[in-house]
Design a protein around this nucleic acid. Structure first.
Lengths: 141, 141
DNA sequence: GCTACATCCTCTAGTGACTAGAGGAGCAAG
DNA sequence: CTTGCTCCTCTAGTCACTAGAGGATGTAGC
């Protein structure tokens, strides 16, 4: 027979903070678990798996709404997985875009810092470049 | 004598939305500009430069508080620029970390998508990997 | 001068995904 | 019995805006 755990144990075992678990319940991402007589939440292994799924998906940067969709897919294993695939692909594209844009930023910041003379603000390239977009090496934005 | 422009023109010339300009004024990032008789804001070239500075810094991912510091530095050109330099370096470190973490995510998502059999959810690697962290190739999180 | 329509004003409330804190109850160990 | 930990609910705060209501003013064409 499956063991039931408290919210604190669920939190420790899944690596999700206690208030966050309550928040997930509030927004309907996690079904409200049964309570003890003293009104405390009790989580069963299924709940923990769901919570771990959510945590992992959040770490991979999926939005709550996407996770909601992925969870309903998981609940119905006979559906084709093209939706899950599409969500993952969209996320991959986002990540790639973010990497590209951050890489451009990095170059910009690098140049800025390199050419700083470490003197007075009046001659500071960091301030100067920020003040004048045209001094940017790349049209990253 | 310097021309004064409306908030709409300031918005167009600096690429910052009208409500955003008002927001910057509200939080004290932009000094409240003088008004016309009809209570409309009038921006002078100095205001526009400040606004462009803010926009550029935001594009480079600096937080409002960091920008606030950078702006006060800009206003006092005789200070040493080590503070500006430190802010830029901190930002660069953040960007690098973000790139690293996104690169790991990208690899993870790539594997997930690659191994998706495009069949039913029951056999979907995307769902499966999300459900079980141990299937991750990298300890990115 | 009149009529549209764009632009401006202020104000409040909403976004996403939590996080912090108040105020109080229950439980286990010493 | 007291100390301290965990749990409960509720509200409000975070960041950097964004959306929308409701109303005043400015401008262009007729």
């Amino acid at each position: 027979m499956a063991e039931k755990v408290s919210i604190g144990e669920a939190s420790r075992s899944c690596g999700v903070k206690v208030p966050t678990i309550r928040y997930y319940e509030q927004i309907g991402l996690l079904l409200a678990p049964p309570r003890t007589e003293a009104n405390r939440r009790t989580f069963d292994p299924g709940d923990l798996r769901r919570l771990a799924f959510i945590r992992h998906a959040r770490e991979l940067g999926f939005e709550i709404d996407a996770i909601r969709t992925l969870l309903t897919l998981q609940d119905d294993p006979h559906q084709p997985c093209s939706t899950a695939d599409a969500i993952a692909r969209a996320r991959l594209a986002e990540v790639q875009q973010r990497i590209d844009s951050l890489t451009a930023l990095k170059a910009e910041l690098g140049v800025m810092i390199e050419s700083c003379s470490h003197g007075k603000v009046a001659d500071c390239r960091v301030i100067e470049v920020l003040a004048d977009h045209n001094q940017c090496t790349q049209p990253h934005h």
